[in-house]
């Protein structure tokens, strides 16, 4: 691992400098993570007095439970819907803003702020907009003969949380797409134009392929965001409902552990999620390695 050619000779000082970070990491990250793994192999009796080592029983139960399988499939639907929607809209914005010269900064300013809105707040904003009795959107939808009720319809509830989660993430994707577009040399676009490609063809054959590293990177980031950072949106609006229709894995860990007090199952779910994060982080870092070489 890299250091400087010249370093300071002190022996004890670096340990003191690392101490605060390592202490917080050890106490609040590594130890709880280990506990989660340990608890996932235990079962507490009904009164919480005694726990027995049950090997993989918690995991077996988990993957045999219809509600967990349901939660996994909902999580995937949610994550990819959010990634697709927010990236598509952001790319549309980025491509159009990139063609502007004078107004580029103004548009950028108008587009970055949703990033600052907390997920829970974003959830409540759209919850209000879609409110079945007073919301403006259900009113408009009713004119098209569509009846909206996210309190009873799982599809409506899912649509609501996908829109709220995507809305907040547009800023992030927009900024990275814009940076990616600006990194494409103008000479390539000009060469394609001389070769007779019109704007739409150029986008399809030149720009979009050259953006693929950015697109892939954002896909991973957005999936991570949708899986782990959207707890606030779900909790503040649908609370996993109706009938588990928006019960994403992160929300289920919370619901089973904190509200349901099922320590073994919740810990097993935590471990599953840890594996998911590790998998996604590895993908992300392998990609970054390639980006550096590129």
């Amino acid at each position: 691992m890299q250091t400087k050619r010249t370093v300071f000779p002190n022996k004890a000082l670096p340990y003191f400098l690392l101490l605060p970070q390592l202490a917080v990491t050890g106490i609040f990250f590594l130890w709880p993570a280990w506990q989660a793994i340990w608890f996932s192999f235990l079962r507490e009796d009904a009164f919480g007095f005694k726990s027995t080592f049950v090997w993989l029983e918690n995991y077996a139960r988990l993957f045999n439970s219809a509600s967990y399988i349901n939660s996994i499939s909902i999580t995937f639907t949610f994550a990819f819907a959010v990634a697709f929607l927010s990236m598509a809209v952001a790319l549309l914005f980025a491509v159009n803003v990139n063609s502007m010269i004078r107004s580029r900064n103004a548009y950028t300013t108008l587009l970055v702020w949703p990033y600052a809105v907390a997920p829970a707040v974003a959830g409540i904003l759209w919850w209000f907009l879609f409110n079945p009795s007073i919301g403006i959107l259900p009113y408009l939808l009713s004119m098209a003969e569509i009846r909206w009720n996210h309190r009873t319809s799982q599809a409506d509830a899912m649509t609501l949380v996908v829109i709220a989660a995507s809305w907040k993430q547009i800023s992030y994707n927009f900024l990275f797409f814009l940076a990616g577009l600006q990194a494409i040399p103008n000479s390539l676009i000009e060469a394609a134009a001389i070769d007779g490609a019109g704007p739409f063809k150029r986008f399809r054959t030149i720009v979009f392929p050259l953006l693929s590293p950015t697109t892939f990177f954002l896909l991973v980031v957005n999936v991570v965001y949708a899986m782990f950072d959207t707890f606030g949106i779900i909790h503040a609006t649908t609370e996993g409902g109706p009938a588990g229709g928006t019960n994403i894995m992160v929300y289920k860990v919370y619901a089973d552990g904190v509200i349901g007090l099922n320590l073994g199952s919740s810990s097993a779910q935590s471990v599953v999620l840890m594996c998911v994060v590790i998998f996604l982080t590895v993908i992300q870092f392998r990609y970054i390695e390639r980006r550096v070489q590129y």
Binding site: Q35, F228, V253, V277, T281
Partner: peptide, 12 residues
Amino acid sequence: TLMLPVEVRIIP
């Protein structure tokens, strides 16, 4: 720590 967001280790 990158791989251990609060969400995955709530109870411990």
